[in-house]
Design a protein around this nucleic acid. Sequence first.
DNA 1: AATATTCCCGTTTTT
DNA 2: CGGGAATATT
Length: 731
Amino acid sequence: MRSRAEATSEDLFADLSKPQREAVVHTDGPLLILAGPGSGKTRVVTRRAAHLARTVARPSDILAITFTNKAAREMRERIEALGVGEDMTVCTFHALCAKLLRQYHDRAGVPRNFTIFDREDRRKLIKQAIEECDLSTDNWSPSSVDHEISLAKNDMLTPQAYQEWAPTWREEEIRRIYEKYEKLLAKMGGLDFDDLLMRTAVLLERDQELCDELEDRYRYVLIDEYQDTNAAQYKIARRLTEKRRNICATGDPDQSIYGWRGANIENILRFEHDYPSAKVVRLEQNYRSTRRVLSAADALIAGNVSRKEKALWTDNDDGVSVRVFELETAKAEAETIAHDITRQVQSGVSLNEIAVFYRVNSLSRVIEEALLREGIAYQIARGVEFYNRKEIKDVLAYLRVLVNPADEVSLLRVINTPPRGIGATTVQRLTEQAKAAGQSIYDLITSGGDLSKLGRSAGRVDEFRELLARLAPALERSAPDALKFVISHSGLQAHYAQAAETDDAPARNIDELVMAAAEYHADHPDATVLDWLEHTALVSDVDSVRNGTGAITLMTLHAAKGLEFAVVYIVGLERGILPFRRTEEVYSDEEEERRLLFVGMTRAKAHLTLSHARYRMLRGSSERTTRSPFLDELPQDQIEWSQVGISPARRRPASDSDGLPDDIEEWTIGTLVEHPVYGLGQVMSIHRSAGLTYVSVQFKNGSRRSLVLEFVPLRRVDFDDVGDVHGSVGI
DNA sequence: AATATTCCCGTTTTT
DNA sequence: CGGGAATATT
């Protein structure tokens, strides 16, 4: 939230800089706004929308596309605050696509009542597809195949095109899986997230008439975060603006952080080529951060080689130094930050203005625990997690089956939830029989298929059929009413009420779901159950973050994009975490990781603290870490380093004979060691477990061993003594 | 058929 | 550590 007062309708331009004004007054023709962090992009975009509505357009002519619902909501609110009517279209790419596919389902070749398959549904189908291709999930991990198919769809590659693109043995097999997966999806009337984009892109590519129609409806199109568009989104943007070319793209190549999702940074870099008459406005003045914060971020991003240089500057004060905290353990890191937050609050900072960012969600737990101990209220950005809970998915699956009976993933989910005597064997028989008859399980159950082979379970299945029939009328109701009806009549309510004796979280979550539906209904009184289901399928983590809650905010660096806080902490600046790497051999895009940290740092208005811990609990054991190389790229003279609870020069007393080397404190990943039998080697990891210290060593002779440091005579040797071992073991 | 137990694996980011 | 799947038990 910007502290300066928002403009009244009289002075749309009064408080704008020259380039900002240029962008606002630009109405017709392509416009690219290259907006550095904190450069007032949202202000420009909203003013421009108001200006358009006042001069050349009606609000309904304007389409603004964002990446998250939160961004859409806030953009809409800010435009409305400028006195522009409510009938603009402001939504995410995915929501727009869902809407278009629903409306033009016949031309798109999708069922009107398609349901959106989330990652879990999708995983299940991919697993099934792999098995039906007679491949083993041991060799073809569903997650990697999933990712591969996702990237293909983001690039608008059909299975055939995918294989042609890379015609090797492996792609041939993945093509088969991809094809099978598509068949399963089609059979079930499901679309996954990528389908929403790809199908829309293909539809627009083929259907000129529709493009014309849409271009007449949306005469002015705004695409936010253009640097994060993938091939399908790019195609959609182009096809929606081909005739009038009234496209306004905003973005910043330095904030491109979704390459792993198929985003193509080239899309923004070639904008001027795509639209030769484009007006380009650069917003390089930063109004958000202190000079010290900005220069630290700027020094970091300068480390990217493939980058267009950009001159970020600010008139703001120097401010206080950026700090780096070095801690012994992740727990100490969390506690130190919690104490520091208390100090900030005592000096008058509002909790609303404080945030903690991390690279991976798993780092949040230790922070949460420290905040609880310290008594600091926090909110955490994880809306999606809520909708992934078992009890929530159970409830939603009932609605999905009612809306789209072909949705077998949902049908199989609810057929025995709560338990009603339809066990695995019966389900398997049903599946096989349906497959043999070439019909869906739903059809088999409802349209009087022959269930006699099921023996005594047939009665149970029949009861289930009756249950579905009783639930069906719920679709006539509003989302919250339908939900309540289904919860009480399906037996879920009784089931979870009984389970509440040991764990009442599921029942409470279900109540919360009903409340969420009621809230949605209040905002969208005409919406159907299907609309609401769609809405729940398209929430993102950051959507759950509310402003002004009186709590600090925890979120991933990805979720932080577009936000700002007075005080920002970024934890876990350790090799392997930030920059992230999976294993030694898997390629990761270090420049994208650097951009990610850049995004995080530039969220801070005044206080920025980066931290790392020397030991961190990862999947159960305490791992030795190495600090992130990114820390060395900061302007060292401007950084305030503090080591809390670490004394690097400390020598352990000789009497301290626990079998560990005296200089253990100095051992890190990469330390060179010598073993009397195996010879020279390099430490690959150190972790502590059950009171022992395990060291994994890659020896120069090629062997790799895990050794217990307490028992093995491993000795540290100096780098200078041994020459170039470093390169030979390849860290 | 349902529940309890163990084991094993993967291990980011997200619409 | 934590979810899911395979396995054991009632």
